[in-house]
Amino acid sequence: MNAFRLAGDMTHLISVLVLLLKIHTIKSCAGISLKTQELYALVFATRYLDIFTDFISLYNTVMKLIFLGSSFSIVWYMRRHKLVQRSYDKDHDTFRHQLLVLPCLILALLIHEQFTFKEVMWTFSIYLEAVAILPQLVLLQRTRNIDNLTGQYVFFLGAYRSLYILNWIYRYFTEPHYVHWITWISGLVQTLLYADFFYYYISSWKNNVKLTLPA
């Protein structure tokens, strides 16, 4: 495993930990989109169908379990936990996530590498992950008031995506036959979605002012 991949996984892990820290210790999910969290739970559930059938490494299995466990517990917290539930900004989190799920499913049925259930589900998860952040970005723009932990959560998620692109470039030049168009194009789309947020995040950090997004 190369350094970009490891750093990407670690920033992904940090983003989840930042979010769990906010929810678990502050008992608040203000500014967090339940729609995005539900999409991520669906992404991991459909991508890791191989978790008990194909063993790659202990690292791989443990990370998969962490991402599955954390994404479902975040959804549980936001839906079921009395205190956390109260801080959920339901009125602004109105993005219709079915509009993302259905096109991704159709696209996965049309464009995939192998027409098997596992492979189509895996491809669906790749497409869905690319756009799953949209409800969160829309919510951030609507709330105007972004707290530090929420900003850091999205920042680390974006860092994870960027590092994965560097990982693919590295693997392309170091491993024979490493060509994966579906993952690359989806990953690139996903990273570009963060570009705008990154711009405002970094400029607010540089100018030492509170992060706000333009309407």
Partner: peptide
Amino acid sequence: VDSELLKDEL
């Protein structure tokens, strides 16, 4: 294309 190779990523 070796699609199996990719499944080692998360």
